[in-house]
């Protein structure tokens, strides 16, 4: 570039990576040489142009993932293992495009309605056939505080520390099995899967994504093992006749 200055130094100068003494030396050369000054200006402009590169890219608002076969599993105890298991299985897919899952606005609306209107008072027990939910939730320090039995769907509300609230919706489905789909946005977390003739949806607001994914993982795992349990079918059939209490 010039006597006493290299191209590397010039770039480092533009990046603010030179020591004060080196920077002063380069600045003095720049002041004396219009060609170098123009070169520095050009480097600055290139750097500035790239600095805004990320700002022009549309940030995926809702990271979406779906479950596939595990490729690398982590071995850990308890829920950590469950979380690692399913998260490791998660193969990302674009947040936009035809393959992106559509959030069930109905279940989200039900969840929001529960947050707004329903009381947490009372002691509830899990409906018959959903006993497998309990270990997952208790390990996650989530306590059942709300049960709503609809005609075709059960809404279970769980409350945890730090005011975490999570809804689990269970309904019958004609699809045997679908992969776990996770939507982890900043203000809304959603999971859906189907197994054993049942559809499961999970909704939360402002729950730590990792925690939500952990619970979804545990429930998905549990439902896969127990989803075909006849008692769950019977329980849902029984509750299907109950009137709405809302």
């Amino acid at each position: 570039m010039s006597v006493g200055i290299s191209e590397e130094q010039l770039n480092a100068f533009v990046d603010g990576e030179l020591s004060p003494a080196e920077a002063a030396h380069v600045a003095a050369i720049i002041a004396d040489d219009a060609r170098i000054a123009h070169r520095v200006l050009r480097l600055h402009q290139m750097k500035a142009a790239l600095a805004g590169f990320a700002d022009t890219m549309p940030l995926p608002a809702i990271p979406v993932a779906r479950a596939k076969r595990p490729s690398h599993l982590r071995s850990a105890a308890g829920l950590g293992a469950a979380a690692a298991f399913v998260i490791a299985m998660l193969i990302p897919m674009p947040a936009s495009g035809p393959s992106a899952p559509v959030l069930d606005q109905g279940s989200i609306a039900w969840h929001d309605d529960w947050l707004t209107h329903a009381s947490d008072a009372g002691v509830w027990s899990l409906p018959s056939g959903l006993d497998w939910v309990e270990p997952v939730m208790s390990t996650s320090r989530l306590q059942l505080v709300y049960v709503h039995r609809g005609e075709a769907m059960q809404h279970l509300g769980f409350k945890g520390p730090n005011a975490c609230r999570l809804s689990l919706f269970v309904s019958e489905s004609d699809q045997a099995q679908t992969p776990l789909r996770l939507t982890l946005a900043e203000d809304r977390q959603y999971a859906a899967w189907q197994t054993g003739g049942f559809a499961f949806e999970m909704v939360a607001r402002d729950m730590a994504p990792a925690r939500f994914a952990t619970v979804a993982t545990g429930l998905r795992d549990g439902s896969a093992r127990h989803g075909a349990d006849a008692s769950l079918h019977i329980a849902l059939a029984q509750t299907a006749t109950l009137p709405c209490s809302a």
Binding site: P60, P63, V64, A65, I87, L90, I91, P92, M93, P94, A95, A213
Partner: peptide, 8 residues
Amino acid sequence: DLYQDALL
């Protein structure tokens, strides 16, 4: 894909 994989 890469972004999401990294976050997860």
